[in-house]
């Protein structure tokens, strides 16, 4: 059975664990760097990126997470998780993990009162996906090897660079598991997908 970790420092951890299990894989909460061993893939959940970053630094997660990224195993960031993966964060000098070739902007749809649900057309999915955006970031620009999987209102909200998948919204908050299934399926093709 595929073992998928969810970084469990803060945020929507429970929802990701339940979604992964609903897709037939084993879900593992990751609170300590040693728990990254023996995983096939890792989810960086939604939450507050500043909080997660502080806890990543405090518990020396940064190098183990970058090492994990180098193994070629898939990583999926939702909302705050996308911000952690991004190579560049608008308005900040340094990225967090900086492993995915995209530039993101935080809170780019506005404050909480501007948060919304919308039906998205996502490449590779046969029917629209109802997505929940909460103080969401978006991808301002994507590198040449990044495949844009979805745009909403002229903004990139889902993309994939090799083994890295990121989206602005929260698939874990809905009962539609197609995006997590897509991510889990990336595990079996991981070696073909390392093109960078």
């Amino acid at each position: 059975m595929k073992r998928i970790g969810v970084l469990a420092l803060q945020g929507a951890v429970r929802e990701h664990l339940q979604t992964i299990e609903a897709c037939g894989a084993e879900a593992v909460p990751v609170k300590k760097p040693a728990e990254l061993l023996d995983l096939d893939a890792l989810v960086l959940p939604g939450g507050e990126s500043t909080t997660m970053r502080r806890l990543i630094d405090r518990y020396r997660f940064m190098d183990p997470l970058r090492d994990f990224a180098e193994t070629g195993k898939p990583m999926f960031g939702t909302c705050a998780g996308l911000i952690l993966l991004a190579g560049e964060v608008a308005g900040y000098e340094e990225p967090h993990l900086g492993v995915m070739d995209v530039k993101v902007e935080r809170n780019s749809f506005g404050r909480q009162i501007d948060s919304f649900e919308a039906d998205l057309e996502i490449k590779g999915l046969d029917a629209p996906f109802n997505a929940v955006f909460i103080r969401a970031p978006h991808i301002i620009s994507a590198g040449p090897d990044t495949e844009v999987l979805c745009e909403y209102d002229g903004k990139i909200v889902m993309a994939r660079t090799a083994q890295f998948l990121g989206c602005s919204f929260h698939p874990e908050l809905t009962s539609d598991h197609r995006i997590t299934e897509y991510f889990i399926n990336m595990i079996s093709v991981e070696h073909q997908s390392i093109t960078i």
Binding site: A8, L9, Q10, G11, A12, V13, R14, E15, G46, G47, E48, T51, C79, A80, Q112, I113, D114, S115, F116, E117, A118, D119, V132, F133, I134, R135, D153, H170, L173, T174
Partner: peptide
């Protein structure tokens, strides 16, 4: 169609606070 202020959006914001202070 873009819907604001739905239960999912409002409750979801609190879900993102979980495990936090």
């Amino acid at each position: 169609m873009n819907q604001q202020g739905t239960n999912r959006v409002k409750r979801g914001m609190a879900e993102m606070q979980k495990g936090g202070v």
